[in-house]
Nucleic acid binder design. Structure first.
Lengths: 205, 205
DNA sequence: GTCTATAGGAGGATAGAC
DNA sequence: GTCTATCCTCCTATAGAC
């Protein structure tokens, strides 16, 4: 009788993964809190509790760190999509995703990246895991958008891509933080307000 | 017969104002193009065609430069508001302002500032001209918002401040640049699309 | 007030020992 | 792979001559 095969992932590899997850969690929090430019690699290292040089053994650059955080967020999004009830109406799926996204943002768990930084853009576009996740999420949302338009719950005159961008943009909507800062509304009230302006618009109905 | 009184503003003072306007114009363009963090004072100096040290004779810091650009934008907004037809319906005034704002953004003339930078926030809050302009614009928009709600064209259930923030947010809406990048729509088409989602919402009507 | 030159310091990235 | 120590580039801001 032969010995059992060695585990596919060694103990050391597991430790490595665990550490990288800790790093990504810190990066995610700091990106949400201060944004990419204001976040320093020293801060990340201090927050994780390791030396800066050790960080660079796991990730090759600051941009790479940010990309890893985005991969994690994209994974969370995919998990959330997987958990949605399959039988629900497309429109309700879309509304649920947007609500979830804004909840993340208000909870300080949504990394905020500058859209103009070209080095960062390159790092993101060159990250296969991120691009795959983004494509998958976009495809799923796109299917719901078209279905909702077909059944007349979503405005059929709007180009699907415009709807998609509009939904994505709720993840970095400054209205959320401004309303939160005012201290007049609880987080869930802020979310319902912005849900209203997003789907029903500002006009009276 | 006495000589005419000396001009209130000396020639040197006029030169100074003209140079500062040139500086502000460069800052405005660079802020719109690359954002605050990516813009360097060296670039501004090179763009204006003067030495960096000379810049600091006019403005005490990079944050001060950005604040001056915001003052100029606020002045343009006030001028635009002044030029609107007085007899138009409040709702139309609001729509006109948002259209104008998005046009500025698409034309690359809307400076983009990070909302998290505290040094910058302090510079803005400490700039009386900026704060006065912001208050004036907000008051005028606020009056139209309440009037539009009173006459039932704007959803009366929305808190006026939430509407105000939502309108302001169109000035930095990433949906504009994303749709522009796609090259599927002309600038005016992009504006009308976002006007639609903003005022009519995503839902079918 | 304009310039050249440089101080001063922050921050990304790496060398090299262990 | 972790550490300490350091490099090096970039950038804000200022000194000092004219």
């Amino acid at each position: 009788m032969t010995r059992t095969a060695p585990p596919k992932v060694s103990f050391k590899a597991q430790m490595r993964v665990a550490r990288e997850e800790a790093i990504i969690q810190s990066v995610n929090r700091l990106l949400a809190e201060k944004g990419f430019e204001a976040m320093t690699v020293d801060e990340v290292a201090a927050d994780v509790g390791i030396a800066k040089a050790s960080l660079y053994k796991h990730f090759t650059s600051k941009e790479d760190l940010a990309a890893a955080a985005m991969v994690a967020v994209m994974q969370r999004a995919q998990d959330f999509l997987d958990g949605l009830p399959v039988q629900a109406a497309p429109m309700e799926q879309l509304r649920a995703v947007v609500r979830w996204t804004m909840g993340l943002k208000l909870a300080g768990e949504m990394p905020s990246l500058p859209s103009q930084n070209s080095r960062l853009r390159s790092a993101l576009m060159g990250n296969k895991a991120y691009m795959d996740g983004l494509m998958d999420v976009s495809d799923r949302l796109g299917a719901w958008i078209e279905a909702a338009q077909a059944q007349g719950s979503l405005n059929p005159k709007l180009p699907p891509v415009a709807v998609l961008y509009t939904l994505y943009a709720r993840a970095c909507d400054p209205v959320l933080e401004f309303l939160k800062m005012g201290d007049l509304y609880r987080d869930d009230e802020v979310i319902e307000l912005v849900m209203g302006t997003c789907f029903d618009g500002l006009n009276a109905r």
